[in-house]
Design a protein around this nucleic acid. Sequence first.
DNA 1: GAATCGTGGTA
DNA 2: TTACCAAGATT
Length: 365
Amino acid sequence: MNEELEKRIKKVNAKKFGDDLVGWFEQEMRDLPWRENQDPYRVWVSEIMLQQTRVDTVIPYYNRFMEQFPTVEALANAPEDQVLKAWEGLGYYSRARNLQAAVREVHETYNGIVPDSPKEIFALKGVGPYTAGAILSIAYGKPEPAVDGNVMRVMSRILSIWDDIAKPASRKVFEAAVRELIYRENPSYFNQALMELGAIVCTPTSPSCFLCPVQSHCAAFAEGSQQELPVKSKKKAAKTVELLTVIAENNKGEVLVTQRPEQGLLANMWEFPSFEKNGTDISSQMSEFLLSDYQVEAVITDEEWLAQDHIFTHLIWKMQVGRAKVSMADTALPEKTLWVSKDKIEKLAMPVSHRKIANRWSALT
DNA sequence: GAATCGTGGTA
DNA sequence: TTACCAAGATT
């Protein structure tokens, strides 16, 4: 941290800043399910779900999840496919697998008690610097920084910090700043208030400075630079991949599905057989694919192909979905491949694009 | 340090 | 429509 910034931090009246911020939070905080109590497990689950995900999106998932897996023990003992299914639609599915792996470690190593030391919490799978600080402060009241995107935005304005917040190294600057300013009377509310302020008042575009409880402490407001902060570099555009996807039905009304590899994109999720398009003879590509990869003989039916896009952050799938009639192959299927009925396909965890395709297939009655 | 890893909402 | 955004972690 440079001396310039150190000087600005010293100039902030930390006591009054905390009083103003936490006082505002006590008045304005939203009534959210994970604020019901300070159960470390409940706090933990909420923080994992909230990673890169909006509050409104998380709420219904969180309520269902806590009903299904109310305790460390319940989640530790649950089948993994059930946990993944509970996560369906939330995205970043490694969060679900890492969470369960970490919960199992807490169950076995810590007798079901979420540890309260920075070193032990940080060592848990899926728990990084932000989440460790969030659990320590919110569940255990420890004065640890919890620096997320909100906190970087708010503090960049309060302290006029022009570091590029898209760069990983910048987080440390903000952690150091928060360490100096943290409200030791109530670290939990202080951290939550910084995030709440970022979500409600100190928004990315057109912040509502006129109703900000810490306006008088804000360097950016004083110099009129709140619209220019934080500095955030742009990310590169997503690549597009063209896929062919097949709804392959047998004569029992079942469809072929396969489970993705346990590493990488959409790990362990179920999907309809798909492959990268290579040319214009898509029907023949598809029957060759079914034969070579699944030992299934099929006739591509002569119906119109439907389009389904799947937009990721760094990737776009443009999918063309065809249907195939399989003359019942009693030969064994490859590993992690199944014939499933409409009832069964609902229970599998699928990414949104394939879930939409499944729903369209089911609607064909 | 840059790339990877989802999804739905919004300007 | 495009681009960006949202309580980040892992590789």
